[in-house]
Simulated assay, not measured.
Amino acid sequence: MAFSVQQIKFEFLSYMKEFEGNDGAWFVGVCADPEAALFASQMVDRQRDIWLWKPALTPRAALAVRDYFQQKFEIPDARCSAPSAAACCVFLYRAGNEREYR
């Protein structure tokens, strides 16, 4: 099931609010394969890190979500190792201070 821009923004904002704090930095990205992007490319720890991903309706919608979080909250882009023009998934994660930022 794919989600609208507004639905993803709401989910991500709720998630950020739930896990707010000063012990890390948020990153946002767009990809075709969120599992590979999060856990292989970005080396997010599935158990310890805070992460979320949602499929958007279109690649343009996914980019709109990413751009919103980059512009409004100055969240850095978490680039995928192999981005695609057809990438429809938006992901968000927070890395702790003990980790090296990518």
Score class of each variant (00 low, 15 high):
Arg46Ile: 11
Leu92Arg: 03
Pro59Asp: 07
Val90Lys: 04
Met43Arg: 15
Gln42Val: 00
Lys54His: 13
Gly29Thr: 11
Gln6Asp: 13
Val5Asp: 04
Glu74Ser: 14
Cys89Glu: 10
Phe73Gly: 05
Tyr93Thr: 06
Ala25Lys: 13
Leu57Asp: 15
Pro59Ile: 10
Phe91Cys: 06
Lys72Asn: 08
Trp51Thr: 00
Ala62His: 05
Val30Trp: 08
Cys88Leu: 04
Gly29Cys: 09
Ser81Ala: 12
Ala87Thr: 04
Ala36Arg: 13
Val90Pro: 04
Met43Leu: 07
Glu18Asp: 08
Glu11Cys: 02
Gly96Cys: 01
Tyr15Pro: 01
Asp67Gln: 14
Lys72Val: 14
Ala78Asp: 11
Glu35Tyr: 11
Ile50Lys: 09
Val65Tyr: 07
Pro59Val: 10
Leu52Tyr: 03
Ala40His: 11
Asp67Ala: 11
Ala61Gly: 09
Ile75Gly: 01
Ile8Trp: 11
Val28Tyr: 13
Glu20Gln: 12
Glu35Trp: 09
Asp49Leu: 03
Gly24Ala: 05
Arg102Trp: 08
Leu63Val: 13
Leu13Gly: 02
Arg94Asp: 02
Cys88Met: 09
Arg46Gln: 15
Gln71Pro: 00
Tyr101Arg: 06
Met1Gln: 09
Glu11Leu: 03
Leu63Ala: 12
Phe39Trp: 06
Ile50Asp: 00
Ala36Pro: 00
Val5Ala: 07
Tyr15Phe: 15
Tyr93Met: 05
Val5Gly: 03
Tyr101His: 09
Val5Pro: 01
Val5Ser: 05
Ala85Pro: 11
Ala86Met: 14
Ala78Ile: 09
Gln6His: 10
Ala87Val: 03
Arg60Leu: 13
Ala61Thr: 12
Glu74Ala: 13
Val44Tyr: 00
Arg94Val: 01
Ala25Ile: 01
Gly24Cys: 03
Glu100Ala: 12
Ser14Val: 05
Val28Gly: 06
Ile50Glu: 00
Cys88Ile: 08
Gln6Asn: 12
Val44Gly: 00
Glu18Ser: 09
Ala25Met: 04
Ala82Gly: 01
Phe19Asp: 04
Gln7Asp: 14
Lys17Glu: 11
Ile75Ala: 01
Cys31His: 08
Ala85Tyr: 07
Met43Phe: 06
Ala25Val: 07
Ala86Val: 13
Asp77Thr: 14
Phe69Glu: 02
Ala37Ser: 15
Ser41Phe: 12
